[in-house]
Amino acid sequence: MNLRLTIAALLLLTACGGSPWVDDGTDGGTDGGTDGGTDGGTGIDGELPPGTTSPTAGAGIVRYEAKTDEGNGYVTGVTYRSKNDRLMIDGLAFDGDNVYKRGKRVGSLGSVAVYEGKPTVPDDFSGDPVTQITPHRALYGVSPDGTMKFAIVRTGGYVDYGFGGFIYQRDGGVTLPATGEDTGEFRGQATYTGKYAGIRDFKNDDGLEYATGDMTLDIDFDDFNDGNGVKGVIRNRAIFDVNGNDITNDVITALTETSERNQTRLPEIRFRVGPGVMNDNGEITGEVFSTYRNGDGALETYETGRYYALVGGENAENVVGVVVVEADDPRADNVTVRETGGFILDRGEEATE
């Protein structure tokens, strides 16, 4: 596993008005979308996360995990400080005084940086150490040009999932393929590839794990007529403990026992294909799932959840987003595992004659 990340990619971040992202700022960001509203659902059947209230194709968009009573959506600001390679995370209690240092055992998952909250913070009066809720971990991904970015923060110190959140953002607009409505001109299709990295937390158990994978996403800009067609898959998945040890086979072995059929790999996460998942602002949201075959050869559902994404660029060349899936953990009774992963994908080089 590569435990280092080229810092150059992170130095490309730029501040954006109205954004929770601040590069070398002084106040840790904005209020993280406390308005909570969005009118960007035109052409999308599923509900978009809160964030930009009047999204357009020509401007940047930021989305936050919706706040729930279970602890989701409490990350309200993210600041990257390039001088000392720190993340400042606002909104979570007992996470190390908002300061996340680069991970010691796991410093990156591929090109995605990993940060960890401090285990203790001194009492401001006595200097005595205040024990923090541990572990807190953050993933931070940025596109090479700095226009697409995501952050995911999860906590492994609660019996339930605990408090955390995710943010994903597009700086600037997107130009989607044009269509001739009168002539029915074909707008074409696109394929995007890249890496996926995630954090796994648990309900009815504590601790955290990491996940990685390879991802492909395809868009049919011509059909469906009611929102573009989108399909995607996350394959070659691997799971690591919080110290970076590969524990993929532990999960596969437990899934083999549960399914009563030999499993040779982790199930692929797939996008459910259907209309109404993408609008003309370049926003996408829909359902994801994974399956395996049981001892009788029948397909059974393993994971279910949702994906959220933004297309960006003059040639619709990039996609940034987040996937959240849940499943019964085959390694333990009455334990649910949630995987929250981020991705930044691109279309590759322009074809030449």
Results as ranks from 00 to 15, higher is better:
57 A>Q: 08
57 A>G: 14
59 A>W: 01
59 A>E: 11
60 G>A: 11
61 I>T: 14
61 I>V: 15
62 V>N: 02
62 V>A: 10
63 R>H: 11
63 R>W: 13
65 E>C: 02
65 E>I: 01
68 T>S: 15
68 T>I: 04
71 G>A: 04
71 G>S: 01
72 N>C: 05
72 N>H: 11
73 G>L: 03
73 G>M: 04
74 Y>V: 01
75 V>P: 04
77 G>F: 07
77 G>Y: 05
78 V>A: 10
78 V>W: 03
81 R>V: 03
82 S>G: 06
83 K>D: 12
84 N>Y: 07
85 D>P: 01
85 D>E: 05
87 L>Y: 06
89 I>M: 08
90 D>I: 12
90 D>G: 06
90 D>K: 12
91 G>L: 01
91 G>T: 01
91 G>K: 00
92 L>R: 04
93 A>M: 12
97 D>I: 11
97 D>N: 15
98 N>Q: 14
99 V>G: 00
100 Y>N: 11
100 Y>M: 14
100 Y>G: 07
101 K>T: 11
103 G>H: 10
103 G>S: 11
104 K>I: 07
107 G>V: 02
110 G>T: 09
113 A>F: 00
115 Y>W: 05
116 E>V: 05
117 G>K: 06
117 G>W: 13
117 G>L: 06
118 K>H: 00
119 P>M: 11
119 P>Y: 04
119 P>D: 06
124 D>T: 10
125 F>R: 12
128 D>I: 11
129 P>A: 13
130 V>D: 06
131 T>I: 14
132 Q>G: 01
132 Q>F: 10
134 T>Y: 00
134 T>L: 04
135 P>M: 00
140 Y>V: 04
141 G>W: 07
142 V>Q: 11
143 S>Q: 14
144 P>W: 05
145 D>P: 01
146 G>L: 04
147 T>K: 15
147 T>A: 14
148 M>S: 09
149 K>W: 07
149 K>C: 07
149 K>D: 09
150 F>Y: 14
150 F>V: 07
152 I>K: 03
154 R>T: 15
156 G>Q: 05
157 G>V: 13
157 G>D: 13
157 G>F: 12
159 V>I: 11
160 D>T: 14
160 D>A: 14
161 Y>M: 00
162 G>P: 03
162 G>V: 09
162 G>Q: 05
163 F>Y: 10
164 G>P: 08
164 G>M: 08
165 G>T: 06
166 F>P: 00
167 I>K: 12
168 Y>M: 08
172 G>L: 06
175 T>D: 12
177 P>Q: 06
178 A>Q: 12
180 G>M: 01
183 T>Q: 03
183 T>G: 07
187 R>S: 13
190 A>L: 02
190 A>Y: 03
191 T>M: 12
191 T>D: 15
191 T>F: 08
192 Y>K: 09
193 T>I: 09
193 T>H: 07
194 G>H: 08
195 K>R: 12
195 K>W: 00
195 K>F: 01
196 Y>V: 04
196 Y>D: 05
197 A>Q: 11
198 G>F: 01
199 I>L: 15
200 R>D: 09
200 R>M: 10
